[in-house]
Computed example of a mutant assay.
Amino acid sequence: MVTIKDVAKHAGVSVTTVSRVLNNSRHPISPETRERVLAAIKELGFYPNAMARSLQLHETKTIGLILPDIANPYYPGIVRGVEDVAHEKGYTVILCNTDRSRERTKAYLRVLREKRVDGVIFTGGGAVEDASREHFFDHGQIATVVIGRHKADLPAVQVDNVQSAQEAVEHLIKLGHRRIATITGPAVSTTARDRLEGYRRAMEAEGIAIESAWIVEGDFEFNSGYQAVGKLPLQGPEKITAIFAHNDLMAIGAIKALQEKGLKVPEDVAVVGFDNIPLASFITPALSTVAVPVYDLGVTAMRVLAELLAGRKVPPVTVLATHLEVRESSLLK
């Protein structure tokens, strides 16, 4: 392995001079000497020791991104947004997929500490709560930004899940639906609780009494939406005529179950989802859904983190706008 001493010998300069060139030191170095050092670095294929450099500069130029399920098509957009800004600002991203496991979250938190990352971005899956239990935020040593609404007193980038869900359900009510069911996320999820609150507000504003049979808990996955349909009243005078699912995966699962039962969407049951994942516009019928600016969530979170790392003040909460993308699953042709 080529060392800094090898570069110094090849260029005919001291190790200190090579170090000054690598770190763009303000110490005066002649253009000829700088070119000779850079040429030696290129000829020998030398790469600086990142760990040694980080100890000297007190930064590693790395950040951790903790997310619950990389297989969920909601999250790659966030990852891309974080990555794009991180790259622009010279940071490397360490991706940590927890699979919604507290043990995996603990393991990743330990690794990020050991690697001395400069900052961490959390998104979804209860990881913030797990990190709080592990006292990850106690000493404020690692700059942190969260995507979503959390109890932790940390800078947050989020959408208004209550208002967005309310608007989705109001859309169904305006179409004449009153027996509207909802397939929720896990009860422990802040996102799910907020979207359920939006559903309740829309129904109560129209004087619609919500029946307990209309609320079925899922887990944000395809299969839970599919299974939830089997628990809803679909026949007789008590049948529901619309479903608001807390995310698109469950909405798509619900549509499949409805179709297998011989019911037409939206003629028999209208369906609205949440997130606007790429698949939403390609299924049949195309899914009406709340469009979340996932890429912008990632971009904004990384920009806020960069501001923190630069020692600048950041807003406690940044809220990005959503909009309802109306498609075939809720509108009759």
Rank of each mutant, 00 (worst) to 15 (best):
R20M: 09
V294G: 08
V317Q: 12
L112W: 11
L112R: 14
R193F: 04
R312W: 08
F137T: 04
G207A: 10
A310P: 03
R179N: 09
S14E: 06
I180Q: 14
P293T: 04
P76Y: 11
G125M: 13
G126I: 05
L263N: 00
A257S: 03
E129M: 03
S329W: 15
V2K: 14
G230T: 01
N161S: 10
A254M: 10
D69R: 11
E260G: 03
E129V: 08
H135K: 12
Q227F: 14
P266K: 14
D6T: 01
I252L: 02
K313G: 01
T33E: 08
E129P: 01
K5A: 06
V93P: 00
T191A: 14
G298F: 15
V79N: 00
K9W: 07
V188D: 12
V271H: 10
V162H: 13
P76N: 09
W214K: 10
Q141R: 10
V7E: 10
Y199M: 06
D118S: 08
S212F: 13
G185W: 15
A254I: 03
N276P: 02
P73S: 03
A209L: 13
N223Y: 10
I277E: 04
Q227C: 07
I180D: 13
N72I: 09
L44M: 12
L232Y: 11
T60I: 14
N161Q: 09
A209Y: 15
F282I: 03
D268H: 06
G77N: 09
Y295W: 08
G124K: 05
V271I: 09
C96K: 07
I78S: 09
E129C: 00
A40D: 06
E197R: 15
A181T: 05
F274N: 01
A152Q: 06
L308S: 04
N23F: 08
K89L: 06
H10M: 06
T98C: 00
V145H: 03
R100F: 01
P233C: 07
A280W: 08
E325K: 13
R178C: 04
R20K: 03
V2N: 07
A270W: 09
N49H: 11
H177N: 08
E204H: 15
V117D: 05
L324N: 06
